[in-house]
Nucleic acid binder design. Structure first.
Length: 264
DNA sequence: ATTGTGGCCTGCCCGC
DNA sequence: TGCGGGCAGGCCACAA
């Protein structure tokens, strides 16, 4: 599923559209439009606008726009767990975990056509992604790529919630999804069910160190699904580090695999 | 405010 | 061979 790493790949893929002018909006699926907006609202906001820049905040892509006659709203793109981005016919991520690579035309949920023939398109079989105008950026915590010891401390606070739930909470840390968190906690040797506020300084340092390495390494390898734990994340799987049968639990509302031996 | 739960959506895979 | 059920999880509404 797209987590921070995949969304960043999407943002980079879309960079060539900076500077282009939108000539048409194709929104065949009203369900995909969130915040009460209609196709007419999108036409009014987007057609004739020039793309000024692309920003990624956690799993949200913000498209900054400018019209010839004044400011335009920010276009927010969300990809849920099966949303793919295609720009000028090219895909950002070839293979999407839990997705499908068939890319049927009926999965097209939203597209922008640019002056001079290019296009930006979202294909999403499960319709869990979304398009909105002026997304509330203040609801997102600091991006996971920008964490520091102080920000980790703030994000965990003295919360009673499970550590994993807190890391998945986009208002505390933006960008992490189920696979990245399981991989990070497995590498850090931390039990996902631990009370978030109960970590000591050394444990928070281990967490941050593991997270940075996970983002670097899995980014290089090609995505959230390339972690060392991934192959063992199945029923009956064993810890790749010490061979202990993995626990399979629901934590933070997500299927969670962890090693009862070395994650404490 | 904080934390937990259920539901949305639908392709895919397994077992019968 | 077809079918039903379970599963995947990002996000949101809602409950306690």
């Amino acid at each position: 599923m797209p987590e921070l790493l995949e969304i960043e790949a999407y943002r980079r893929l879309a960079e060539p559209v900076v500077g282009r002018r939108i000539v048409a909006v194709i929104a065949p699926d009203p369900w995909f439009l969130k915040g009460g907006i209609t196709v007419d609202d999108l036409d009014l906001a987007l057609v004739g606008a020039r793309v000024e820049g692309l920003r990624r905040l956690g799993k949200l892509v913000c498209v900054d726009l400018a019209g010839p006659d004044g400011p335009r709203p920010v276009l927010g793109l969300r990809f849920g767990m099966t949303g793919r981005l295609l720009v000028d016919g090219r895909a950002g991520i070839e293979r999407l975990e839990y997705g499908s690579d068939r890319g049927l035309p009926e999965w097209d949920r939203f597209a922008l056509a640019f002056a001079g023939d290019g296009e930006l398109r979202i294909s999403d079989p499960r319709r869990l992604g979304a398009v909105e105008l002026d997304p509330d950026e203040s609801r997102l915590g600091p991006d996971a790529t920008t964490l520091t010891p102080a920000r980790v401390r703030d994000a965990l606070g003295d919360s009673d919630a499970p550590l994993k739930a807190r890391l998945l909470d986009q208002s505390r840390v933006a960008g992490l999804g189920n696979l990245l968190v399981d991989e990070t906690l497995w590498r850090a040797g931390l039990d996902p069910a631990r009370r978030a506020g109960g970590l000591g300084d050394a444990e928070r340092r281990r967490l941050l160190h593991a997270l940075r390495r996970v983002l670097d390494e899995l980014g290089d390898r090609g995505g959230s699904h390339t972690g060392d734990l991934m192959a063992a994340r199945v029923r009956g799987g064993s810890c790749p580090r010490d061979g202990t049968p993995l626990d399979r639990r629901t934590i933070g509302g997500r299927t969670t695999y962890s090693c009862p031996h070395h994650q404490r």
